[in-house]
Design a protein around this nucleic acid. Structure first.
Length: 445
RNA sequence: GGAGAGAUGGCCGAGUCGGCUGAAGGCGCUCGCCUGCUAAGCGAGUGUGGGGGGAAACCUCCACCGAGGGUUCGAAUCCCUCUCUCUCCGCCA
């Protein structure tokens, strides 16, 4: 396979520079009060004093370096002239030698300040959009709308884990033997159902919603994880390969958003819509004892993701549309759901605004998250360096990135099993899915 | 795994013994001209980031020729390390 350094046991450490997030520095410097207030609203502790100090020092050092470099450039030119005419430039060369050393020293100082700044900036969460409701936790997320009627049963509805195991289409015991807790094993009609849903979702998004299907790598490097915001702060939530600087993707958002890393798009290309099916891998660190049964919280699950790259002015409009694209799947499957707006305190690190779609789960009698649709505005684009150029306008602008699950497939299976269960233990297949299930209208024994 | 070749601007492609090369030339693109349409033709312009000046057009400085480091007064050009790409052989889904 790949190169391997036996001495360190280290496979291909992929070097990368996240670069000096200049835009980020400028943005924070210029919007200091806003940033300060927004971070407080989020409950994020960021050392803005250290930021200001490092920023000021950086600017000082940089201007001195540039001055010296200019001097060196000019004098070097003169030396060239003198030498061409056969003269002696010994003194000038000696002089420039010390200038060169001084520059080298300053460059070291500069790198130090930039390291400090970079570290702080990478740990700074996105600022919530003005429309985000204030709040501290999940409890404070307002319900935006409720769609569909939860089904009424004339028997006590069972949990999807019981239904699935009784039908022989889910087997958590064997999955645990193969891998461990929180891994799924689908069998027969269960495996078929999972695949049917993936195809149904992809077909709907590509055929009706204008998305381009992509199938990205399931392992990504550190830079990609950093760009979308999983790193550096949330390394504990990720699975990382031993001896390789690769991570298993926790969502297709990571590889798909990074498709255009370091690119300058043209305005004509925007908006770009991608949809991707991928498995997702999450360590679920710190969730011991939560959702231990069933498909709700797994180390590995499938998801169909929606990702958009848009112009800044239209990103919120696009968010509404993306949300509707995800909702469409639930409506077609005839599942009851509601949409909540995440409050400032519950917002993810990279998001400026997020809607969660929650599907009705009869066994527990609660709505459970099945999709999360977010606008990241320019946050990820800044880190990933994704810009676009507008005709007749100088320079470049950052795109806005958005994404949402459309939907989490494992949770959709769970919802279908519970919502369409019958007293005899069989499960009805919703109309929309039948073509993908070989015409089957029932999952039975 | 073995052997070799390469990485330059939106693309193709040149860079001499290290010195006005941010980078020839071509293509593309933009604006203007011309032609009763189209094609062709002519002229000008056309990288990114950052700093300074200016109302603006624009001017000016610094950096960037895969990445990082080194040599030097001076590096796209020399040296080292890494990454990636391509070709051939082997192996493999």
């Amino acid at each position: 396979m790949a190169d391997r350094d036996i001495t360190t046991g280290f496979h291909r450490q992929i070097p990368f520079n996240i670069g000096i997030p200049m835009l980020e520095i400028k943005f924070v410097r210029q919007n200091f009060p806003t940033v300060e207030a927004a971070l407080k609203a989020r409950g994020a502790a960021v050392d803005l004093v250290a930021f200001t100090r490092a920023d000021a020092q950086r600017v000082d050092i940089l201007s001195e370096i540039e001055q010296l470099r200019h001097q060196r450039n000019v004098v070097s030119e003169q030396i060239a002239d003198i030498k061409r005419q056969g003269g002696d430039a010994g003194t000038m060369m000696a002089e420039m030698r010390t200038v060169g050393e001084r520059i080298k020293g300053l460059e070291k100082d500069l790198a130090e300040q930039e390291q400090i700044l970079g570290g702080l900036l990478l740990e700074m969460p996105n600022l919530p959009h003005a429309s985000v409701p204030p709040g501290l936790s999940e409890e404070d997320n307002p319900v935006l709308k409720t769609v569909g009627q939860p089904p009424v049963f004339d028997f006590t509805p069972k949990g999807h884990w019981d239904i699935g195991e009784q039908l022989g289409i889910l087997d958590f015991t064997r999955a645990a033997r193969i891998a461990g807790a929180r891994f799924p094993l689908y069998l027969g009609a269960g495996a078929r159902l999972e695949r049917a849903l993936i195809n149904f979702m992809l077909d709907t998004h590509t055929g009706e919603h204008g998305y381009t299907e992509v199938l990205p790598p399931f392992l990504v490097n550190r830079r990609s994880m950093t760009n979308t915001g999983q790193l550096p702060k949330f390394a504990d939530d990720l699975f990382k390969l031993e001896n390789w600087d690769y991570f298993l993707i926790p969502t297709a958002e990571v590889p798909v958003t990074n498709i255009h890393q370091d690119e300058i798009l043209t305005e004509a290309q925007l908006p770009i819509y991608y949809t991707a099916y991928t498995p997702c891998f999450r360590s679920e660190a710190g969730s011991y004892g939560k959702d231990t049964r069933g498909l709700i919280r797994q180390h590995q699950f499938n998801k169909v993701e929606l990702v958009k790259f848009t112009r800044p002015e239209s990103s919120y409009e696009e968010l509404e549309r993306l949300l509707d694209n995800a909702e469409t799947i639930l409506r077609r499957l005839g599942l009851a759901y509601r949409v909540v707006t995440l409050c400032s305190g519950d917002l993810g690190f990279s998001a400026a605004k997020t809607y969660d779609i929650e599907v009705w789960m009869p066994a527990q009698g609660v709505y459970r998250e099945i999709s999360s649709c977010s606008n990241f505005e320019s946050f990820q684009a800044r880190r990933a360096n994704i810009r676009f150029k507008e005709k007749g306008r100088k320079g470049t602008q950052l795109v806005h990135t958005l994404n949402g699950s459309g939907l989490a497939v494992g949770r959709t299976v769970a919802a279908l099993l519970e919502n369409y269960q019958r007293a005899d233990g069989t499960v009805a297949v919703p109309e929309a899915l039948r073509p993908y299930m070989g015409g089957k209208d029932t999952i039975g024994r």
